[in-house]
Design a binder for these strands. Structure first.
Lengths: 108, 108
DNA sequence: TCTCTACATATAGAGAGCCTACATGTAGGA
DNA sequence: TCCTACATGTAGGCTCTCTATATGTAGAGA
């Protein structure tokens, strides 16, 4: 899929994937791919900077850990992030409704 | 609505609005607003360059006309554009399905 | 007559955000 | 030893949308 079109929806995706459990970047990428049935192949060069951005925004809290000799930065959703996620969800519904009404008007 | 998030979907919108009748830029903007129930307020600085881009791509054919003393550039969908629209529609369905599956997973 | 609003198109420059390509390093299997 | 999976990160480029601005006509109202 042309993930370029994600423009602006990446945040929602990342927050959503972290809703129920903290994950590190690499695992987030895998989770996105799995949850979307393989459709979302988001490159690392997109995800890591985005996670930093969301952390700066206060939506995520990141923490370093070492597992099996490898360093990981695990992110969890903050309360502010949880609120933001709810906002992103309703924005997504509005967005699809608006585009959908133009693209696939119910003939009536 | 944050039309910035339209990124990449503008083309589909424009092609779709021109599917059944040729329109000029200003009328296209109004049609988008009307069809979306007021949700899509796309600025002229976005639409006019986008129309030129689609014309260069061969999806639209534009023609000058004068109506009531005002000059208009009326665009109609070409055959190539019609094919592109079909592609945009299926891309849109894939896109929403992918994001949707991450954002609002059917709890099951 | 003057002014305002609607109609109508267009460009320049800024900003956002995603991408490609590259850099770095560990662990484990062939 | 080499390759693959795991794991994070930066630099620079590109595309597309936005804001702001410019230009001009037609018609309504003061």
């Amino acid at each position: 899929m042309n993930t370029n079109a994600l423009h602006g929806h990446m945040d929602a995706l990342l927050l959503s994937v972290l809703e129920h459990e903290p994950l590190h970047g690499y695992a987030i990428i895998e989770a996105l791919q799995e949850r979307s049935g393989g459709a979302l192949a988001v490159p690392t060069g997109t995800v890591y900077p985005a996670l930093r951005r969301l952390e700066r925004a206060g939506y995520l809290a990141g923490e370093w850990a070492t597992v099996g000799g490898r360093k990981r930065r695990t992110y969890r959703l903050t309360d502010t992030g949880r609120t933001a996620l709810a906002g992103e969800r309703s924005a997504w519904r509005e967005f699809t409704a608006a585009i959908g009404s133009v693209l696939e008007p119910r003939a009536r």
